[in-house]
Simulated assay, not measured.
Amino acid sequence: MRQWWTRLLPTTTASFVDFELAPSRLSAAALACLYSCVAVLLFFSWLHTSLPLPIVFCCLDMLMHEWLTLHVCRHSLQGRLVVSMSGDVRWQQEKWHIDRVKIRNRYFLLLHIRRPGQVRWLLVCHDACDERSYRALSLICYSAVNFSSSE
């Protein structure tokens, strides 16, 4: 017999998910924090005289270039995302298939998707869409993980 409080909890059932994926502020903050910590460590290594100043400037320049590249890549992870229970994905007007779900937790999902001749990692943060869509996508990914691990 189900407890009375379990009937009050929100439940999610889904055979497919269709939502608009937006750039995540959480991933932007994580990238900014990570790269600023590395820049501070480079600066302190110069103060400690373990690295000369020209090498620190070159490393900071490469770090800034890499951060901008990842920032542009993060903004390209948007558009309409349709995922079915069979693992078929329709994203940015292209057909993909979920190869595996690398990370699935309450903050983000990391999906390895593929199509003939192309493979990508798709990061879906919980703030990139509404809560109902994220829960449905998480449920589909959980089912896909259980289905692929039983084979």
Rank of each mutant, 00 (worst) to 15 (best):
L26H: 10
E20D: 09
C37L: 14
T11Q: 15
N146D: 05
I103H: 14
D61F: 08
L77R: 14
R7E: 10
C73L: 08
D61L: 03
T49L: 10
H71T: 09
A32I: 01
A14G: 11
S15T: 10
G87W: 05
L26G: 06
W91A: 00
Y107A: 01
S24G: 06
S15R: 12
V101M: 07
Y35A: 06
L53P: 04
H65M: 03
A32F: 10
H48F: 13
L21Q: 02
V40E: 00
P10E: 11
S36Y: 00
L111W: 06
L68W: 12
K95Y: 06
S133D: 10
S76Q: 09
L41E: 06
W5N: 13
N105I: 01
S143I: 00
L26P: 00
R90S: 12
W91R: 02
A30C: 08
V124A: 05
S86D: 15
A39I: 04
E131Q: 14
R115G: 03
P116N: 02
M1Q: 08
M64R: 11
E20T: 08
A30R: 15
L63G: 10
W96C: 06
F108K: 12
W4N: 08
L111G: 04
R114S: 08
V82A: 05
L70D: 07
L51P: 11
H97P: 00
N146C: 09
R120H: 08
A28Q: 14
S24V: 01
A144Q: 09
S148H: 09
Y35E: 00
F43I: 07
E131A: 15
W121E: 09
R25M: 02
T12I: 08
L81Q: 06
R106T: 06
D88H: 12
S50Q: 14
L31I: 03
S148A: 12
S150T: 12
L60P: 04
Q92C: 07
E66G: 02
G79E: 03
R74F: 01
W5L: 14
I98S: 04
M85K: 15
Y107E: 02
P116M: 00
L21G: 03
R114Q: 13
C59N: 07
L8E: 11
M85D: 15
L51A: 12
Y35F: 15
S143W: 01
S150A: 14
S76G: 03
K102L: 13
R104A: 15
S148C: 09
L123N: 13
T69A: 08
L53Y: 10
E151S: 12
W96L: 06
A128Q: 15
S45P: 02
A136L: 01
H97W: 03
H71A: 02
Y134K: 01
F44H: 02
F108E: 04
C33S: 14
W5C: 07
C125H: 14
W121T: 09
S133Y: 05
R135V: 00
P116K: 11
R80A: 07
L68V: 03
V145F: 00
S84L: 11
V83K: 06
A22R: 12
S86I: 11
R90N: 10
S24T: 02
S143F: 03
L21N: 07
V89R: 06
C37A: 15
Y142R: 11
